[in-house]
Design a protein around this nucleic acid. Structure first.
Lengths: 225, 225
DNA sequence: CGATGTCTCAATGTCAACATTAGGACAAGA
DNA sequence: TCTTGTCCTAATGTTGACATTGAGACATCG
């Protein structure tokens, strides 16, 4: 069959709260450095502090927020050093994901990649909403990790996924033209290499793809705030 | 100065509970597949269920236990597939950690590596307690990650560290002689390469070191339950 | 006899109250 | 003025009780 059923994942309020807060951070409602108070979030989301607390712990494992003993939780700030760390790790993970997926990916999964590239193309043709493009970008890489089929690798990706998402949103803020001009071509090439490319070339291009994003963000970062 | 003070990290009961349960798993008190009931742990550790719950969530992020919606938490089982996943990811992480540390490590950190190798040598001379050797092995790699100085990379390592620890304990169960014969030499070579070796050679040897561990474990795994 | 519906209970999910702490305001002293 | 000690408060850490759920036992029906 095409795909196993979505296994009816019934989730708890903690996951719900985590999703809500994460979306609020991406939307800019909670800017970098903003404090996330448990009581305030609890009554705003209509759940108890325990659930909010569990959700915040999840976001902390995603690296989106930082907290300490009796010191509250705050949204991370996007410093050049943070970007260096995240993109260095992402390069290593993407490299492994790509080379693994090169051998393990099914035809259906490869088609899903092509479909995402097509959606990016269509999005740009319609004007190009930046957040939507970034979401497609992330979804493309999600699909590669899924195709690799390594649960631990996927978990490692999920631990920096939200940070990458945040950084990419920042990137399109400071260098949208550069991003818009390259996003489709780079992903189209990755998709092609994943379907029928040399492993070593694929590994190199996967790393370079991340390197490209890192430079693009860092070029505009020091000038910001 | 030699080192910044350990910043007096005051921890909560949740971390304490996580440490206790983790140790209990390593010691074999909770064998693979054993259920971890919150109520039982709570009264045995003398803390509330909330703290135990938070601790278990931490262990779940470490991949040591698995849990689902209203389905309890159980210790992971060591299957061949799990080992493949963990060691594939570890190879990528160790490669990045080693190459990064090659440039960033301080003299003090390199000496710490030598000291650990010396401890391994001494331990083997005294008979060679397997769990202690494994602990030194893990500590050696901890030190490399610390020397790399990439917080996100260290977090990714911590997300599989406990699983690696568990797998290595299993490895010395099934192939202690092989482990005992190689552990000192392999780590001594890594330490030397980190001090003054070619980057590409270091990257390759770091991956091979993991590959060696993977094969050693997998060779004895399928025969075991 | 096998399949299906219902029931039961042990275990987890959720909640609101209580205990503890970090960090700042403030005043006294050198 | 700078340092130091104290207090206060807003937030987090912790707890036990209540609500909900999943999985197996059991009975019923085909």
């Amino acid at each position: 069959m095409s795909s196993a059923l979505p296994k009816a994942a019934r989730r708890g309020l903690a996951d719900e709260a985590a999703d809500l807060v994460r979306a609020a951070i991406f939307s800019g409602h909670f800017p970098p450095g903003a404090p996330l108070r448990e009581v305030e979030l609890a009554q705003r989301l209509g759940v108890s502090r325990g659930s909010v607390r569990e959700g915040l712990a999840q976001l902390e494992h995603e690296g989106l927020v930082r907290g300490g003993w009796h010191r509250g939780t705050t949204v991370i700030r996007v410093t050049a050093e943070d970007a260096q760390e995240v993109y260095a790790l992402r390069a290593a993970l993407d490299r492994l994901a790509a080379t693994t997926a090169r051998r393990a990916a099914t035809a259906e999964q490869l088609c899903a990649l092509d479909r995402l590239v097509a959606e990016m193309t269509a999005e740009i043709a319609e004007g190009g909403d930046a957040p939507r493009l970034v979401a497609l970008d992330i979804a493309f890489h999600d699909q590669i990790y899924a195709a690799a089929g390594n649960g631990r690798l996927t978990s490692a990706w999920e631990a920096i996924r939200s940070q990458v998402h945040l950084f990419q949103l920042r990137r399109v803020d400071v260098a949208y033209d550069h991003y818009r001009a390259r996003v489709v071509d780079e992903h189209r090439e990755l998709a092609a290499l994943l379907r029928s490319g040399d492993i070593r070339t694929l590994a190199r291009r996967a790393e370079e793809h991340v390197e490209s994003a890192r430079r693009s963000l860092l070029a505009g970062l020091p000038t910001a705030p």
